[in-house]
Design a protein around this nucleic acid. Structure first.
Length: 493
RNA sequence: GGCCCCGUCGUCUAGCCCGGCCUAGGACAGCGGCUUUUCAAGCCGUCAACACGGGUUCAAAUCCCGUCGGGGUCACCA
């Protein structure tokens, strides 16, 4: 059946799709995925992606955090037609700069007796929340003492300079229905006496959405499903103010192998951390989308940017999805393998530099060879450092692998190889193959054993790049040295 | 604890809305094999699921009810 078609309330320029990621905490895979789906939705149906950044809460107006967020969204491949950086007819697109827009709405809610002023300090609120948590109150806690202060009295105190939160009255917090784009009809309920505006006039997410998504003429709003309570607040507020509510798409959550929401305890969950590790952005996008959406043609690998109308042919699944690193690594490895050595070289360079393997402005031709050899074995670009020692340092040979070198047969292989390679001025793939055959003949070892022994001597690992690829890049001299050292190590321990 | 969401192979899913074509299909992982230049990649094969219990029906993964399980949320900050 696919995804329901959008209701276009905004004229001929197509559907207006909104996302409103928060600036802190840093955007994680779930937020990234909600944004990705919004972007795909726009591409499939034609329209405008409107990016509104929720930067009003927490550390206020932190420009670096905002640009980091935009960078991360762009990194994964998303682009938007209206947003803080590109502007648009409904600017500004930062909630911190829209405080004026919220004041009227809040005042009207207050006047109409739908909201009340709460004079409690953050400490008092915190203490109360703790107590409720401990008491495991079964009753919905309503009737907060501030709620019973008369409106006139509350206004007087507020005008006298008291710092207040604006909160939704308990009787306005009942559950409401929403026809969700991914879930169908759902029922949601705002938290008891939900917070709308803080003492500095900064809106809480649901309240900001109620106002902004109407003024920005959003038709469909994508968000991750943790924000369902905020959606409830949005609907309640909008209803009270006589405003419309866009269709909302709650994208299902991403959980770890233990079933708990994928987050810190599973390691890196932020966009930034995947970026730092050097995952291929297209692969991460592919992976995240495929977590809850299957290609109508059964493809498992696809470039989200080329999906276009195909995206609308298949529905977004609502069930929680398990973040499977193996699957991500596989997709990322495949994608990396398809990139040219030059493309990879530029991206791998910082890791080598940072690891102290190379100096600024190193030999590009040699680096390209190294990258070409390692390319098949990278799940993410930072893994290059696992292999960097082979080419740029002293090969480290694991104790476990040294056992192999201790054998008399291994010694014979290494000696035979060294003798030959020492006499060579150049070592290409063909020369290496020939040499191996000679060594094989001289030692009467199997080809497999010869290769494995040399692999350990030259790379220090039993997995990783092929010896037959590594040796030519190292050249005869370095090969001889590494073998010499391996022989030495074998005798030591 | 209140409220909400979710429940098909280990994982991602197809099927569910519109009951029969489902002795439940695919992919990935796992396992086995082939590629005999090793690890990896690639190719071939194989294992494996409708959470449970009631109902409705000639017929249920598909509809209804209940139970169980998992998760989310309950100001901000973390």
């Amino acid at each position: 059946m696919g995804i329901p078609r959008p209701m276009n309330t905004s004229g001929s320029d197509g559907v207006r799709v909104g996302i409103a990621p928060v600036v802190t905490p840093p955007i994680a895979v779930s937020g990234l995925r909600a944004a990705l789906f919004a972007w795909l939705y726009v591409r499939a149906h034609g329209g405008t992606l409107v990016l509104r950044v929720a930067d009003a809460q927490g550390p206020r107006i932190r420009d670096e955090l905002t640009s980091l967020l935009l960078e991360n969204l762009r990194w994964i491949g998303i682009d938007w037609q209206e947003g803080p950086d590109v502007g648009g007819p409904h600017a500004p697109y930062l909630t911190s700069r829209r405080v004026d827009h919220y004041r009227d709405g809040a005042q009207r809610l207050l006047d109409d007796g739908i909201a009340f002023r709460c004079f409690c300090t953050p400490e008092e609120i915190e203490a109360r929340a703790q107590k409720e948590k401990r008491g495991r109150s079964s009753q919905k806690p309503t009737g907060h003492r501030c709620a019973s202060i008369s409106a006139a009295e509350a206004e007087r105190r507020a005008r006298a300079g008291a710092r207040t939160f604006v909160r939704l009255r308990g009787d306005a917090c009942g559950r409401v229905a929403s026809d969700d784009v991914v879930r169908g009809r759902i029922f949601v309920e705002p938290p008891a006496e939900a917070f709308l505006v803080d003492p500095d006039g900064a809106p809480f997410d649901g309240f900001a959405s109620a106002i902004d998504e109407v003024t920005m003429r959003i038709d469909v709003s994508f968000r991750d499903d943790e924000s369902m309570p905020e959606t409830a607040v949005q609907i309640r507020v909008a209803r009270a103010l006589g405003l419309s509510v866009p269709r909302i798409a709650h994208v299902g959550e991403i959980v770890g192998p233990d079933g708990a929401r994928f987050g810190k305890r599973h390691g890196a969950a932020t966009a930034q951390s995947f970026r730092r590790l050097g995952y291929h952005p297209r692969a991460l996008a592919n992976f995240l989308v495929a977590l809850s959406w299957s290609h109508p043609d059964g493809l498992e690998r696809f470039d989200p940017a080329t999906l276009d109308r195909d995206f609308a042919r298949s529905p977004i699944r609502r069930e929680p999805a398990v973040f499977d690193f193996k699957a991500l690594n596989r997709i990322s490895a495949q994608t990396i393998r398809e990139e040219s050595p030059d493309f990879l070289l530029d991206r791998v360079y910082p890791y080598l530099l940072e690891g102290g393997f190379i100096d600024e402005g190193g030999d590009r031709a040699r680096l390209r060879e190294v990258v070409a050899v390692c390319r098949e074995h990278l799940s993410c670009l930072s893994e290059i450092v696992k292999y960097a020692d082979i080419f740029f340092g002293e090969t480290f040979i694991e104790v476990k692998e040294r056992k192999l070198l201790k054998r008399e047969s291994s010694r014979q292989i290494l000696v035979a190889f060294r003798e030959r390679v020492e006499r060579m001025s150049d070592l290409d793939a063909e020369g290496f193959r020939r040499t191996i055959t000679e060594v094989q003949g001289a030692t009467r070892a199997t080809r497999e054993t010869v290769l494995l022994t040399l692999r350990v001597a030259l790379t220090g690992q039993t997995a990783g790049p092929d010896v037959s690829d590594v040796a030519p890049v190292l050249g005869p001299r370095a090969c001889a040295e590494k073998v010499e050292r391996a022989l030495h190590l074998a005798h030591q321990s």
